[in-house]
Amino acid sequence: MTIYAALIALAACAQADELRIDANGTALELDIRRLGAAAYVPLQPAADAFNAKLEPLPDGSLNVCIGQFCVNVRLDGSDQRVLQTERGVYASASRLPELLNAHFGWNETAQTPALLPGAAPTRSIQPGERMPDIALPDLDGEQIRLSSFIGKRVALYTWASW
């Protein structure tokens, strides 16, 4: 083997070009695109597994909808969650859960990562949206879930010692 061939073999070992993942019970092998320090995979097959509809909007953005739950993504390059390619819309692998109201679980049978229904706590929120179920400790270190206040109206006051 020439040094060049060895280098190519090494590169192939280090970086997969397909990602095996189970999406809502469907085994997928997704093509991988790298952009800087982020990996992207095709959105459509994962969306199909969740019966999610991809709805283009007049402003050029895209709604990813499961029933009444929609996430809006911009395709103009300003939205790191998605990447427009000549083969369609790709989604950031780490942020697929956010787009599909899902979370990363483990598929024991296939021994692969799995996308499972139900969102893990999210990062940002707009008025009208449901609060993610964040847990924060009290002074005694006991974790209090925000979902434990459901049924009451909450005035949440944020402050700091500084």
Binding site: A14, A37, H103, G105, W106, A114, L116, A120, R145, S147
Partner: peptide, 20 residues
């Protein structure tokens, strides 16, 4: 309550996509 993300899954993804 919201489901927890699996560490094992994220470790596997991170091994497959080490530059992410």
């Amino acid at each position: 309550p919201a489901p927890a993300t699996s560490l094992k899954a994220v470790e596997a993804l991170s091994r497959a996509l080490p530059y992410d």
